[in-house]
Design a protein around this nucleic acid. Sequence first.
DNA 1: TTCCCATTGTTAAAATAATAACAATAATTT
DNA 2: AAATTATTGTTATTATTTTAACAATGGGAA
Lengths: 206, 206
Amino acid sequence: METLPDKTVERLSQYRRSLNNQLAKGKEHIFSHEIANLLHITSVQVRRDIMLIGYSGTLRKGYDIKELVHLIGVILDTDDGQKIAVIGMGNIGKGFIHYLYEKRSKLKIVAAFDINPEKIDKTYADVYCYHLDKLEEIIKKENIKIGIITTPPQVAPEIADKLANAGIKGILNYTPKPLSVPEDVYLEEYDMITSLEKVAYFVKEE
Amino acid sequence: METLPDKTVERLSQYRRSLNNQLAKGKEHIFSHEIANLLHITSVQVRRDIMLIGYSGTLRKGYDIKELVHLIGVILDTDDGQKIAVIGMGNIGKGFIHYLYEKRSKLKIVAAFDINPEKIDKTYADVYCYHLDKLEEIIKKENIKIGIITTPPQVAPEIADKLANAGIKGILNYTPKPLSVPEDVYLEEYDMITSLEKVAYFVKEE
DNA sequence: TTCCCATTGTTAAAATAATAACAATAATTT
DNA sequence: AAATTATTGTTATTATTTTAACAATGGGAA
């Protein structure tokens, strides 16, 4: 399949979670406008996204939730799952680990890294924390493909370099320090302060 | 001034922080391509953003960093600052408080809320944690205008309602539960799992 | 002094994303 | 059985964002 638009991929992730909730409630079929209401978006957008992934509903009955969830899985997941490392065991790093804990997801955080002796060689929500020195070794050994950087910003660039060298193919950068990575590494950056300043701006303006 | 485009506002926040770093290093003027390099974007984009906020550099000398930082402040900040509440003292809530701690920013987290007795009536990085029951009272009393929701997703909608009722004008929703708010409240949503699944998808595709 | 060149500021074009419009169709009502 | 209605799927339109193109300017070089 053609690579999907960024925003569609984001929504697929959200559709899936909402749809799983509905499944858990015993619902089997759903209309585009119902999905839209769950996410507070428009039904056109839902139908367009579903069109893009090549699924079809039935007129008057809507979409088969189970089938749709399955198809989203085929698109977003890999068969054997993807392994993730968290670099930086601060609040945000722990937050990620905690979020994914106990979710039977195809995404698995399999290692954490830090330099604080109090955190090293301990386990948080089943994730073992190694010294940062072991970064490349463990990533290669475990064949980890995704890294989440939640360190202090100053060290983020060198972490990114090490990750890329060790064979990581996707980086989620949570530090406010903009990174640059080799072409074959997918980079997603998110800056909490920027979000907050954005809210502040629009509050001020309206 | 006309309301600026979303993406420009986001970048202004980032320009400011990078420019402050440069100031701290003693640099006084900067070219658009230098700013671009710091953020790993293009110089056209930098110039266009700067045009939109109505600032002008000098040919051959670039932009006066101090002036530019000041102007971004005029645009993003309010004179007396904006007060913020964090609802949910988990990892992410603490992360936000920690991030803003000691930064002499116009954004000030002035209260946190939780229902866990171990957290209530304690202080984390100078932020006092109240019982959730006090939410509306404190928000009104302190005239808090922005709320960051970092609670478990199930309770997010009711928190949002309370915030809106108490007079909050901007909400940053960190839970994966999509919210809807009154028209006069600005809502920004961010979902960590979506980001991660997006990275996973593009890693898989490339 | 004249020409070159780096750099800005701005308009034009392209890419991406969201919304609107509407034809097709099958269930339901009359 | 015909008409109505709710809903999908898709194309067309509009809005937003990024990128490209390039004229203007003034400092420095020739």
